[in-house]
Design a protein around this nucleic acid. Structure first.
Lengths: 156, 156
DNA sequence: GGTGAAAGGTCATTAAG
DNA sequence: CTTAATGACCTTTCACC
Protein backbone atom coordinates (compact mmCIF):
# COMPACT_ATOMS: atom_id res chain seq x y z
CA UNK A 1 0.00 0.00 0.00
CA UNK A 2 1.24 3.48 -0.80
CA UNK A 3 1.32 6.29 1.67
CA UNK A 4 1.01 9.97 0.97
CA UNK A 5 2.59 13.00 2.58
CA UNK A 6 -0.02 13.23 5.32
CA UNK A 7 0.49 9.58 6.25
CA UNK A 8 4.20 10.20 6.39
CA UNK A 9 3.83 13.23 8.62
CA UNK A 10 1.46 11.31 10.87
CA UNK A 11 3.84 8.37 11.28
CA UNK A 12 6.76 10.69 11.93
CA UNK A 13 4.76 12.61 14.50
CA UNK A 14 3.69 9.43 16.28
CA UNK A 15 7.27 8.21 16.27
CA UNK A 16 8.50 11.38 17.95
CA UNK A 17 5.62 11.69 20.40
CA UNK A 18 3.69 8.44 20.64
CA UNK A 19 1.52 9.61 23.50
CA UNK A 20 -0.11 12.62 21.90
CA UNK A 21 -3.25 10.85 20.79
CA UNK A 22 -5.53 11.35 17.85
CA UNK A 23 -6.93 14.72 18.85
CA UNK A 24 -3.59 16.39 19.48
CA UNK A 25 -2.19 14.85 16.30
CA UNK A 26 -5.02 16.35 14.29
CA UNK A 27 -4.22 19.76 15.75
CA UNK A 28 -0.52 19.44 14.93
CA UNK A 29 -1.18 18.28 11.40
CA UNK A 30 -3.88 20.85 10.76
CA UNK A 31 -6.54 18.37 9.74
CA UNK A 32 -9.76 17.11 11.26
CA UNK A 33 -9.69 14.49 13.95
CA UNK A 34 -11.75 12.12 11.83
CA UNK A 35 -9.14 12.35 9.12
CA UNK A 36 -6.37 11.30 11.48
CA UNK A 37 -8.52 8.49 12.76
CA UNK A 38 -9.31 7.32 9.23
CA UNK A 39 -5.64 7.45 8.24
CA UNK A 40 -4.61 5.53 11.32
CA UNK A 41 -7.23 2.88 10.66
CA UNK A 42 -6.07 2.59 7.07
CA UNK A 43 -2.43 2.32 8.05
CA UNK A 44 -3.19 -0.37 10.59
CA UNK A 45 -5.48 -2.26 8.22
CA UNK A 46 -2.86 -2.06 5.49
CA UNK A 47 -0.22 -3.46 7.80
CA UNK A 48 2.00 -0.40 7.60
CA UNK A 49 1.59 0.19 11.33
CA UNK A 50 1.78 -3.15 13.08
CA UNK A 51 1.07 -1.79 16.50
CA UNK A 52 2.18 0.42 19.33
CA UNK A 53 3.82 -2.11 21.57
CA UNK A 54 6.42 -1.10 24.15
CA UNK A 55 9.95 -0.74 22.81
CA UNK A 56 12.04 -2.61 25.33
CA UNK A 57 15.77 -2.01 25.62
CA UNK A 58 17.65 -5.27 26.25
CA UNK A 59 20.57 -3.33 27.74
CA UNK A 60 18.32 -1.92 30.46
CA UNK A 61 17.16 -5.46 31.20
CA UNK A 62 20.73 -6.44 31.91
CA UNK A 63 21.75 -7.64 28.45
CA UNK A 64 24.06 -4.94 27.11
CA UNK A 65 26.02 -7.15 24.71
CA UNK A 66 24.70 -7.72 21.21
CA UNK A 67 26.13 -10.09 18.61
CA UNK A 68 25.25 -11.46 15.22
CA UNK A 69 25.90 -15.12 14.54
CA UNK A 70 26.04 -16.66 11.09
CA UNK A 71 25.13 -20.32 11.24
CA UNK A 72 25.63 -23.04 8.70
CA UNK A 73 22.96 -25.69 8.95
CA UNK A 74 23.18 -29.30 7.92
CA UNK A 75 20.91 -30.02 4.99
CA UNK A 76 17.38 -30.96 6.04
CA UNK A 77 17.72 -29.99 9.69
CA UNK A 78 16.50 -26.41 9.21
CA UNK A 79 13.13 -26.89 10.93
CA UNK A 80 14.67 -28.45 14.04
CA UNK A 81 17.28 -25.72 14.26
CA UNK A 82 14.62 -23.03 13.98
CA UNK A 83 12.59 -24.59 16.75
CA UNK A 84 15.69 -24.84 18.91
CA UNK A 85 16.68 -21.22 18.37
CA UNK A 86 13.11 -20.00 18.88
CA UNK A 87 13.35 -21.53 22.35
CA UNK A 88 16.40 -19.51 23.34
CA UNK A 89 15.35 -16.17 24.88
CA UNK A 90 18.66 -14.53 24.00
CA UNK A 91 17.93 -15.08 20.31
CA UNK A 92 16.11 -11.86 19.46
CA UNK A 93 15.62 -12.61 15.79
CA UNK A 94 16.47 -15.27 13.26
CA UNK A 95 16.67 -15.12 9.49
CA UNK A 96 17.38 -17.68 6.85
CA UNK A 97 19.53 -16.23 4.12
CA UNK A 98 20.90 -16.98 0.70
CA UNK A 99 23.68 -19.53 0.72
CA UNK A 100 22.47 -23.05 1.32
CA UNK A 101 21.80 -23.77 4.94
CA UNK A 102 22.74 -20.35 6.19
CA UNK A 103 21.04 -18.52 8.99
CA UNK A 104 21.71 -15.23 10.70
CA UNK A 105 20.63 -14.51 14.23
CA UNK A 106 20.82 -11.60 16.62
CA UNK A 107 21.90 -12.48 20.14
CA UNK A 108 22.16 -10.60 23.40
CA UNK A 109 24.10 -11.49 26.53
CA UNK A 110 24.79 -10.17 30.00
CA UNK A 111 28.49 -9.67 29.27
CA UNK A 112 31.17 -10.70 26.86
CA UNK A 113 31.84 -13.68 29.09
CA UNK A 114 28.16 -14.53 29.21
CA UNK A 115 28.07 -14.38 25.43
CA UNK A 116 30.10 -17.57 25.39
CA UNK A 117 27.38 -19.30 27.35
CA UNK A 118 24.74 -18.02 24.94
CA UNK A 119 26.72 -19.11 21.91
CA UNK A 120 27.24 -22.53 23.42
CA UNK A 121 23.53 -22.80 23.99
CA UNK A 122 22.85 -21.70 20.42
CA UNK A 123 25.33 -23.92 18.63
CA UNK A 124 25.11 -26.86 21.00
CA UNK A 125 22.60 -28.55 18.77
CA UNK A 126 23.01 -31.15 16.13
CA UNK A 127 22.47 -29.68 12.71
CA UNK A 128 24.58 -26.59 13.26
CA UNK A 129 27.79 -27.27 11.38
CA UNK A 130 29.63 -24.01 11.80
CA UNK A 131 29.06 -20.68 13.53
CA UNK A 132 30.74 -17.31 13.07
CA UNK A 133 29.99 -14.59 15.58
CA UNK A 134 30.47 -10.86 15.23
CA UNK A 135 30.18 -8.88 18.44
CA UNK A 136 28.63 -5.45 18.17
CA UNK A 137 30.86 -2.66 19.41
CA UNK A 138 28.90 0.41 18.41
CA UNK A 139 25.52 1.11 16.90
CA UNK A 140 25.91 4.27 14.82
CA UNK A 141 22.45 3.83 13.27
CA UNK A 142 19.93 2.27 15.66
CA UNK A 143 16.96 0.53 14.09
CA UNK A 144 14.97 3.24 12.40
CA UNK A 145 12.18 3.60 9.89
CA UNK A 146 11.43 7.31 9.51
CA UNK A 147 13.81 8.04 6.61
CA UNK A 148 12.27 5.18 4.68
CA UNK A 149 8.76 6.36 5.52
CA UNK A 150 9.61 9.81 4.22
CA UNK A 151 11.06 8.38 1.04
CA UNK A 152 7.98 6.18 0.55
CA UNK A 153 5.71 9.18 1.11
CA UNK A 154 7.71 11.27 -1.37
CA UNK A 155 7.49 8.59 -4.03
CA UNK A 156 3.82 8.04 -3.20
CA UNK B 1 17.73 -2.23 36.51
CA UNK B 2 16.10 -5.49 37.43
CA UNK B 3 12.50 -6.32 36.85
CA UNK B 4 10.23 -8.58 38.83
CA UNK B 5 7.42 -10.88 37.84
CA UNK B 6 4.82 -8.11 37.88
CA UNK B 7 6.95 -5.93 35.62
CA UNK B 8 7.32 -8.87 33.28
CA UNK B 9 3.62 -9.55 33.18
CA UNK B 10 2.92 -5.87 32.59
CA UNK B 11 5.34 -5.65 29.67
CA UNK B 12 3.98 -8.84 28.15
CA UNK B 13 0.43 -7.56 28.51
CA UNK B 14 1.30 -4.24 26.89
CA UNK B 15 3.05 -6.06 24.08
CA UNK B 16 -0.02 -8.14 23.33
CA UNK B 17 -2.54 -5.31 23.75
CA UNK B 18 -0.85 -1.93 23.65
CA UNK B 19 -4.09 0.01 23.68
CA UNK B 20 -5.55 -1.21 26.94
CA UNK B 21 -4.34 1.63 29.15
CA UNK B 22 -3.42 1.73 32.80
CA UNK B 23 -6.83 1.06 34.25
CA UNK B 24 -7.60 -2.02 32.19
CA UNK B 25 -4.06 -3.31 32.77
CA UNK B 26 -4.54 -3.06 36.53
CA UNK B 27 -7.72 -5.12 36.25
CA UNK B 28 -6.02 -7.81 34.16
CA UNK B 29 -3.05 -8.02 36.51
CA UNK B 30 -5.18 -7.96 39.64
CA UNK B 31 -3.36 -5.03 41.22
CA UNK B 32 -4.26 -1.45 42.05
CA UNK B 33 -4.25 1.14 39.32
CA UNK B 34 -1.64 3.17 41.15
CA UNK B 35 0.66 0.17 41.23
CA UNK B 36 0.55 -0.19 37.46
CA UNK B 37 1.16 3.51 37.01
CA UNK B 38 4.14 3.41 39.37
CA UNK B 39 5.61 0.36 37.62
CA UNK B 40 5.21 1.97 34.23
CA UNK B 41 6.88 5.17 35.41
CA UNK B 42 9.74 3.15 36.87
CA UNK B 43 10.20 1.12 33.70
CA UNK B 44 10.23 4.24 31.56
CA UNK B 45 12.56 6.09 33.91
CA UNK B 46 14.89 3.09 34.03
CA UNK B 47 15.04 2.93 30.27
CA UNK B 48 13.56 -0.54 30.05
CA UNK B 49 10.60 0.82 28.10
CA UNK B 50 11.91 3.30 25.60
CA UNK B 51 8.54 4.31 24.28
CA UNK B 52 5.43 3.26 22.48
CA UNK B 53 6.21 4.36 18.96
CA UNK B 54 4.48 2.88 15.95
CA UNK B 55 5.96 -0.36 14.66
CA UNK B 56 6.18 0.17 10.92
CA UNK B 57 6.49 -2.76 8.52
CA UNK B 58 8.87 -1.95 5.64
CA UNK B 59 7.22 -4.63 3.50
CA UNK B 60 3.87 -2.85 3.70
CA UNK B 61 5.63 0.34 2.62
CA UNK B 62 6.75 -1.37 -0.55
CA UNK B 63 10.12 -2.69 0.63
CA UNK B 64 9.61 -6.43 1.03
CA UNK B 65 13.23 -7.46 0.50
CA UNK B 66 15.61 -7.49 3.46
CA UNK B 67 19.34 -8.10 3.35
CA UNK B 68 22.31 -7.94 5.66
CA UNK B 69 25.55 -6.51 4.33
CA UNK B 70 28.91 -7.04 5.95
CA UNK B 71 31.22 -4.18 5.05
CA UNK B 72 34.96 -3.91 5.39
CA UNK B 73 36.05 -0.35 5.97
CA UNK B 74 39.38 1.22 5.15
CA UNK B 75 41.23 2.16 8.32
CA UNK B 76 40.37 5.66 9.52
CA UNK B 77 37.39 6.22 7.26
CA UNK B 78 34.84 4.84 9.71
CA UNK B 79 33.24 8.19 10.55
CA UNK B 80 32.71 9.16 6.91
CA UNK B 81 31.25 5.76 6.11
CA UNK B 82 28.85 6.02 9.02
CA UNK B 83 27.65 9.43 7.91
CA UNK B 84 27.18 8.15 4.39
CA UNK B 85 25.17 5.12 5.47
CA UNK B 86 23.10 7.18 7.90
CA UNK B 87 21.99 9.21 4.88
CA UNK B 88 20.65 6.19 3.01
CA UNK B 89 16.98 5.58 3.92
CA UNK B 90 17.18 1.91 2.97
CA UNK B 91 19.80 1.37 5.69
CA UNK B 92 17.59 0.48 8.64
CA UNK B 93 20.40 -0.10 11.10
CA UNK B 94 24.15 -0.12 11.24
CA UNK B 95 26.55 -1.76 13.65
CA UNK B 96 30.29 -1.77 13.98
CA UNK B 97 31.53 -5.19 14.93
CA UNK B 98 34.63 -7.04 15.99
CA UNK B 99 37.07 -7.59 13.20
CA UNK B 100 39.03 -4.54 12.17
CA UNK B 101 36.98 -2.16 10.08
CA UNK B 102 33.94 -4.34 9.94
CA UNK B 103 30.39 -3.12 9.87
CA UNK B 104 27.07 -4.88 9.55
CA UNK B 105 24.00 -3.18 8.18
CA UNK B 106 20.42 -4.13 7.54
CA UNK B 107 19.04 -3.08 4.18
CA UNK B 108 15.62 -3.15 2.58
CA UNK B 109 14.69 -2.84 -1.08
CA UNK B 110 11.64 -2.81 -3.33
CA UNK B 111 12.67 -6.05 -5.05
CA UNK B 112 15.65 -8.28 -5.59
CA UNK B 113 16.50 -6.20 -8.61
CA UNK B 114 16.13 -2.98 -6.62
CA UNK B 115 18.47 -4.43 -4.02
CA UNK B 116 21.27 -4.06 -6.51
CA UNK B 117 20.59 -0.33 -6.69
CA UNK B 118 20.58 -0.09 -2.90
CA UNK B 119 23.81 -2.04 -2.60
CA UNK B 120 25.44 0.15 -5.23
CA UNK B 121 24.33 3.20 -3.29
CA UNK B 122 25.70 1.73 -0.06
CA UNK B 123 29.06 0.54 -1.33
CA UNK B 124 29.61 3.31 -3.86
CA UNK B 125 31.65 5.26 -1.40
CA UNK B 126 35.35 5.47 -0.88
CA UNK B 127 36.35 3.73 2.28
CA UNK B 128 34.30 0.60 1.72
CA UNK B 129 36.80 -2.01 0.64
CA UNK B 130 34.63 -5.07 0.40
CA UNK B 131 30.98 -5.94 0.86
CA UNK B 132 29.27 -9.29 1.33
CA UNK B 133 25.49 -9.38 1.17
CA UNK B 134 23.16 -12.05 2.49
CA UNK B 135 19.59 -11.78 1.27
CA UNK B 136 16.92 -12.76 3.78
CA UNK B 137 14.66 -15.53 2.54
CA UNK B 138 12.63 -16.28 5.64
CA UNK B 139 12.26 -14.83 9.09
CA UNK B 140 11.43 -17.72 11.39
CA UNK B 141 11.91 -15.56 14.49
CA UNK B 142 10.86 -11.93 13.97
CA UNK B 143 12.41 -9.38 16.28
CA UNK B 144 11.05 -10.14 19.72
CA UNK B 145 11.74 -9.31 23.31
CA UNK B 146 9.12 -11.08 25.43
CA UNK B 147 11.05 -14.32 26.05
CA UNK B 148 14.00 -12.26 27.28
CA UNK B 149 11.74 -10.14 29.46
CA UNK B 150 10.32 -13.27 31.04
CA UNK B 151 13.78 -14.68 31.67
CA UNK B 152 14.92 -11.39 33.19
CA UNK B 153 11.84 -11.33 35.42
CA UNK B 154 12.44 -14.92 36.49
CA UNK B 155 16.04 -14.21 37.40
CA UNK B 156 15.01 -10.94 39.07
C1' DG C 1 -12.55 8.85 44.50
C1' DG C 2 -14.12 12.82 41.58
C1' DT C 3 -13.59 15.46 37.32
C1' DG C 4 -12.03 17.30 33.17
C1' DA C 5 -10.55 15.42 28.77
C1' DA C 6 -10.08 12.51 25.12
C1' DA C 7 -11.29 8.32 22.34
C1' DG C 8 -14.40 6.30 19.30
C1' DG C 9 -18.62 6.10 16.95
C1' DT C 10 -22.20 8.10 13.86
C1' DC C 11 -24.03 11.55 10.88
C1' DA C 12 -24.88 15.09 7.11
C1' DT C 13 -22.47 18.16 4.37
C1' DT C 14 -18.95 19.47 1.25
C1' DA C 15 -15.05 18.85 -1.79
C1' DA C 16 -12.38 16.42 -5.09
C1' DG C 17 -10.99 12.47 -8.02
C1' DC D 1 -20.23 8.57 -9.00
C1' DT D 2 -17.01 7.23 -5.63
C1' DT D 3 -13.87 8.38 -2.20
C1' DA D 4 -12.24 11.35 1.32
C1' DA D 5 -12.38 15.20 4.54
C1' DT D 6 -14.93 17.99 7.69
C1' DG D 7 -17.33 19.57 11.82
C1' DA D 8 -20.98 18.35 14.86
C1' DC D 9 -22.88 15.57 18.42
C1' DC D 10 -22.87 11.76 21.69
C1' DT D 11 -21.45 8.16 25.06
C1' DT D 12 -18.00 5.65 27.34
C1' DT D 13 -13.68 5.45 29.25
C1' DC D 14 -9.56 6.89 31.05
C1' DA D 15 -5.73 9.89 33.04
C1' DC D 16 -4.61 12.97 36.40
C1' DC D 17 -5.04 15.50 40.64
Amino acid sequence: MGIDALDGRLITLLDLEPRIGVLEASRRLGVARGTVQARLDRLRAGGVIRGFGPQVDPAALGYPVTAFATLEIKQGLGPQVRAHLAGVPEVLELHTTTGQGDMLCRLVARSNADLQRVIDKVVGFEGIVRAATAIVMENPVPLRIIPLVEQAAREQ
